[in-house]
């Protein structure tokens, strides 16, 4: 019983000591931040620019994703069935194709009647085509399956191949892949290149940004090199020395985040209508609102992360006394 009470007291006192130390570290950090306003503002400024750069990359990613999705949604292949294939057989084939690959986004069944209706609707203002259709007589259209994948030409090629060689190939009259092959490959290559280019550019810019922030924080801490050495001399623990610098990194990160989230929201709101003119259907402000938590996570994580890690690395160098 006595031992339990004693260990409880020790634990409480340890907790109290840790809490007191934390409060002191926080106090030192705020004091240093206030007393070195010039350097603090410079650090927040550099961090803000860096976070804005990362944020703009995320906006850029949103725009390119929208663009590539739009383009990829416009490419498809169509399997035309022989005239007397029953709907049940076609739907059976549809199920088989769906089982083939997870990259298939959509398969739409278009019956003979629907194909005719689409044609009539599309060409209702063209009397010549309507007359031609009358002269052919009946419904000349074939039932079909319209297949959309993730845009990869290899996927389209393999689906076209299966359609033409498998058991149900006897039901299929024609697959229009060969006519569309070049276009699909070109579009896929363009979208793939945009993504690769975006990724490489993003990595390069982020690396440059991180090194700029690191250099700025290094400058801030180098300024305190003698102070760190004195703190070591009087017996301060590493965390008691490192803490205020790390905490300052967090303060820089939080302030930079608040500035950035405000700038991002306002810019997305103001630019939404202008971007919508260039990219109909894409509202950048809605994109920001839908993904707000990712923006918060990126900006806060990047701001605090880079601030804290830079501070830890630079202080560590000076703690070797």
């Amino acid at each position: 019983m006595y031992e339990f009470v004693n260990s409880h007291k020790t634990r409480n006192s340890l907790m109290f000591h840790m809490f007191t130390n934390f409060k002191r570290i926080l106090g030192f950090a705020f004091n240093d931040f206030n007393r070195n306003k010039g350097i603090s503002i410079a650090a927040v400024f550099v961090l803000t620019i860096t976070i804005l750069l990362v944020t703009s990359l995320f906006f850029f990613h949103g725009i390119t994703s929208y663009l590539t999705t739009q383009i990829q949604n416009k490419i498809d292949i169509t399997a035309y069935f022989v005239d007397d294939t029953s709907e049940a057989d076609i739907l059976g084939v549809k199920d088989e194709i769906l089982k083939m690959s997870s990259s298939i986004k959509n398969i739409e069944y278009i019956s003979k009647d629907q194909a005719l209706a689409f044609f009539n609707e599309k060409h209702q203002d063209n009397p010549i085509l309507a007359k031609a259709l009358q002269e052919v007589g009946g419904n000349p259209f074939l039932p079909s399956l319209n297949i959309t994948t993730n845009g990869d030409p290899v996927q389209y090629a393999s689906i076209a191949d299966v359609l033409q060689t498998s058991d149900f190939s006897k039901l299929i009259n024609k697959v229009d892949f060969s006519q569309k092959k070049d276009t699909i490959e070109k579009i896929y290559s363009i979208t793939k290149n945009i993504n690769i280019f975006g990724l490489i550019l993003g990595i390069i810019l982020i690396l440059i940004a991180i090194s700029v922030v690191f250099s700025t924080i290094k400058l801030v801490i180098e300024n305190s090199r003698d102070e760190i050495s004195t703190m070591k001399t009087v017996g301060a623990s590493d965390w008691f020395i490192r803490g205020p610098f790390v905490m300052q990194g967090i303060i820089y990160g939080i302030i930079a985040f608040l500035i950035c989230i405000f700038i991002s929201a306002v810019s997305a709101y103001l630019l939404a209508s202008k971007i919508q003119i260039m990219l109909p259907g894409f509202n950048i402000f809605s994109y920001f609102l839908t993904n707000w938590w990712i923006f918060v996570l990126i900006q806060l994580g990047f701001g605090i992360g880079v601030g804290v890690i830079s501070a830890m690395i630079v202080v560590k160098r000076h703690l070797e006394v």
């Binding site: 004091n31 240093d32 305190s224 102070e227 301060a236």
Partner: peptide, 22 residues
């Protein structure tokens, strides 16, 4: 070896804070 960014009071108090005094 004074702490240049701390006041006279803080310079002395720091030593006691390092020691964990209340």
């Amino acid at each position: 070896k004074l702490l240049p960014k701390k006041t006279v009071y803080e310079n002395v108090a720091y030593i006691m804070q390092v020691e964990g005094k209340d």
